[in-house]
Design a protein around this nucleic acid. Sequence first.
DNA 1: GCTTTTTTTATTGTCCGACTAATGTCCAGG
DNA 2: CCTGGACATTAGTCGGACAATAAAAAAAGC
Lengths: 264, 264
Amino acid sequence: MPQDERSTGSRLKISSPRPLRGEAHNLATHGHTMYQGRLHGALAHRLGVDILRGTFKSGEILPNEIESSSKLDISRSAYREAIRILAAKGMVESRPKTGTRVTERERWNLLDPEVLGWMFETEPSQDFIKALFELRLITEPAAAELAAIRRTDEQVETMRAALEIMKRDTLQTETGRRADLEFHHALIQATGNEALASLSSSIEAAVSWTTRYKARRNALTRDPVPDHERVFEAIERRDAGGARWCMESLIRMAHEDTQKTFHP
Amino acid sequence: MPQDERSTGSRLKISSPRPLRGEAHNLATHGHTMYQGRLHGALAHRLGVDILRGTFKSGEILPNEIESSSKLDISRSAYREAIRILAAKGMVESRPKTGTRVTERERWNLLDPEVLGWMFETEPSQDFIKALFELRLITEPAAAELAAIRRTDEQVETMRAALEIMKRDTLQTETGRRADLEFHHALIQATGNEALASLSSSIEAAVSWTTRYKARRNALTRDPVPDHERVFEAIERRDAGGARWCMESLIRMAHEDTQKTFHP
DNA sequence: GCTTTTTTTATTGTCCGACTAATGTCCAGG
DNA sequence: CCTGGACATTAGTCGGACAATAAAAAAAGC
C-alpha cells in the first residue's frame, strides 16, 4: 500500500539543484551533460534520466504539476508536455486526484531510441548491457542472414562505401562512427523487414554510445574493420550461413570490448 | 523538394468529418472505433492512425496549430500535447516557422506498443504482418530457449495455471485471451532479459489483436492449446532445444492461421 | 551577377490564470 | 459492515498573449 508520497512536503528531487533554465537558455542536466533544445524536450530528458537512474522509483508519485513547474521555474504547459512525452514512452501515468506516478519498469519502452539514449547518459548497469547484447546476438545474426538473401546490388555498394570510410578513419573519429552506423543501416534495410529494421536501428544507435565511451576512454579495443569486412563479404556473395556466423562473432567481440571498457 | 503544403488552404483532412468531441464526451474515430479517455490521448490516437493509414503522408506538413485546433474545436494546449505524444514516437517533428511534419516511415517507432495498437486499428498490410511474424520467429524461439534454461519453479507454476485456463475457456473468450497473454508474459519474464521482454511484450500485445480478429470472424483455426502445452513441457523439463523448436512451430502455425484469416 | 548579410514573417514555443472534470477519500446513514 | 453521497485534490482543458526560432525574402556588399 503506497502511502502518501506528498507528505515529504515540497522537496523536489531532481538531480540538479535548479539550473534547468540557465542564463544562456540551454540547460545542464547534472553537471557535465548539456541539453539544448525545446524546454519540454529538455525536461523530459532530465526526468527520464532521473527515472532510469532510480532518483524517482517505480510507484512513486511526482509532486503535483503546480508545485513541480513552479519549483522548476517553468510554465505548467511546458511541464505537462514533458510529462506527455514520458507517458508516451510508458514511463509515467497520470490520473486526476492521484497525480502522476512512475510506472513499473516492466512497462517502460526500453527499446525506444530516446529511452536508450537516456540510459547511456549515466553508465548503465552491467545487467542491462548484457541483456542488450544478448538481444543483439539474437536479432542481428538473423538480420545478416536475411540481408544476405535479399540484398540488392545497390545496398551492397552502399555498404562497401561505408566500409571504405571506416577503414580510412577509425571509430575514434566522428565520421568513422557515422560510417559504422551507415553500414549497419544499409544492412538493416537489406533485410526487407521493417519491424526488424525499427528494432535494430534503435539498438544500433544505443550501442554506438558505448563505442563513443570506448573511444573516450581510449580503451585498447580490437580493430572492428576486419569483422565488418567478413560480414560484408558474406553478404556480397549471398552466403546466408556465413553472414550469420560472421555477424555473431562480430557482436561477441564488440561485447567483449565493451565489458573490458566498463569493468576492466 | 517538398513544395508548399499549406497552399491547399484550411482543409483539414482528418478521417472523420468532425466528431472529435461528441455529445457524450467520448470520441469516435471514424465510424465504429470509439475512444474514451483524455482529449490529448484521443487526438494522438486519431492522428496516429491517420498517419499509419497514409491519410497524412511522410514529409507532409500538418496545418498549423491554431488552424488545426480551432477546426477540431479543441484548445491549442490539448492539440500540442497530442503532437508531443506523436513526436515521442518518432512520427512527427515540429519546428518553428516550418511547422509540424510527418517524418519518414523509417523513423517511426513501429514496435511501440501503442503504435502497434494503432496499426491494427485498420487492417494492416500483408507485408507488415509478414515482417512481424518473421521477427517473432527470430526472437520468440530464442526467448523460449532462454526461458527453459533460466526459469524458476514459480514461473513454471504461473504458466501451468494460465495454460489450465486456456484449456477450459478458449481464445474465443476474453478470459481465455488474457490467460494466453499471461502465459507468454510469464515465459518472457523467465528469460531474465528485460530488453527482450520489452520487445516481446509489445509484439505479443499486437499479435493478440490478430487473435481477436480471428475470433471475430470465427475463422476455423487450429486449437492452439496443444502447441502451448508442448512449449510448456519443454520449458518445464529445462529442454532448451525442445523449447526453441516447439515455439518455432507454434509461431508458424499462428502465422498460417492469421494469413488464412486475412486472405482466405 | 553572385555571395553574404540583414530584415521580415510564419510558426512553434512558452507563459499565465482561470475554470472543468475526474477520482480517491471520508463520512453519514442504512 | 456495507453503501451512497458530499468533499477535496489533482490532472485536464481552455483562451489569449507574447517570445524565440528558423525559413524565406530583401538588402547590402563584393
